[in-house]
């Protein structure tokens, strides 16, 4: 491939010790959008997603002397951005109970999306995920986009595995109700 942003991970990592600034730029161009998207899917906040993704690259640059990537660079960066996201959530100290109460009132109206003409699948997926109660949404997006097991999610959010499973079941049920009509059995 000849695209500027498609240099191989080996090439980028090999460049890091000798020409760190070029290596960082290539890495940034290849993965920045991917990391922002991963974080935004969990946090639903574009501004913070961009801040946190930049933090991930800055950390790589700061630790460039001792860094060792044992998985793929993509998986390494994704893991790092999910960790950043989790730290951000912890620092924010979200009050789950309140938010769940508020959000469940909001989610009662999730069904209205389906009554509209010209409503497409993509939009209804968006609004269905956005309207999940906050904690339910977080568990779902970490599972779907963060490549985390139920046990990992439970540990990170300081809740029981049972709670993770319950939230996941709730999320799948609500999403099925909201977008199910668009999906054919396959």
């Amino acid at each position: 491939m000849t695209f500027e942003n498609e240099h191989s991970d080996e090439y980028i990592l090999g460049l890091l010790p000798s020409n760190d600034s070029l290596a960082m730029e290539l890495m940034f161009r290849k993965y920045y959008a991917y990391l922002c998207q991963t974080i935004v899917r969990v946090l639903n906040d574009e501004h913070t997603a961009e801040d946190l993704a930049q933090e991930v690259f800055f950390d790589v640059w700061r630790k460039r002397a001792e860094i060792s990537v044992t998985t793929s660079l993509r998986a390494y960066l994704r893991r790092a951005s999910v960790n950043k996201t989790l730290n951000f959530i912890r620092d924010r100290k979200i009050k789950w109970d309140d938010e769940d109460k508020l959000a469940s009132a909001a989610s009662d109206t999730a069904g209205i999306a389906l009554d509209l003409e010209g409503q497409d699948l993509e939009r209804s997926i968006h609004s269905a995920i956005d309207l999940l109660p906050e904690r339910c949404r977080l568990v779902f997006t970490l599972s779907r986009f963060g490549e985390m097991s139920h046990l990992q999610i439970a540990n990170e959010l300081n809740i029981s595995v049972k709670t993770v499973e319950n939230q996941m079941t709730k999320a799948l049920k609500m999403l099925k109700a909201a977008i199910g009509p668009f999906l054919r059995d396959s």
């Binding site: 922002c36 998207q37 935004v40 899917r41 574009e46 699948l121 993509e122 997926i125 968006h126 995920i129 779907r144 986009f145 999403l175 977008i179 668009f182 999906l183």
Partner: peptide, 9 residues
């Protein structure tokens, strides 16, 4: 289906 979530961003 959920794979398209936030792909437009």
């Amino acid at each position: 289906a959920t794979g398209s979530y936030r792909k437009d961003y």
